[in-house]
Amino acid sequence: MQHTLSVLVENKPGVLTRVASLFARRGFNIDSLAVGETEDPTLSRMTIVVAADENAIEQITKQLHKLINVIKIQDLDPKDMIDRELVLYKVNAAPDRRHEVIEIANVFRAKIVDVGKNSLTIEATGTGDKLAAMEDLLRAYGIKELARTGRIALARGSRDA
């Protein structure tokens, strides 16, 4: 099963290596990983998406906790989290088909951020599902290049004390 771990860590050099090597050592493939500073500049939040069964996720969480620089770990409940990803697609779009691509982007509330002679670059944010649906449609035109940030997520506000 896919898990979204939200891991609060000290914002120090080497912390990413420690976390990543822990996953590698136990043979887990990280589906995505996004890191950035939080509201407190001494802390970073890592959002790690990983597929693992319950026992494995329990073990990996406990092992993560043992890292001195790891402060807090949440295994986010998919029903109770806000998650987003940002993707840039560079899509083939000869002038005569541009409008079709733009239309798709509009449907998904994505933005055209660059226009080339034969391509368009689209910026899209959303959940994994939405982006997958959009990507499906764009594939018909040919996706030349793609870059994604990986999932970031927070527990919903209703869960706050």
Binding site: G14, T17, R18, S21, R25, K66, L67, I68
Partner: peptide, 11 residues
Amino acid sequence: ITGITIPITKH
């Protein structure tokens, strides 16, 4: 050596 010893040190 810090890289090498990540998996074999507590910290």
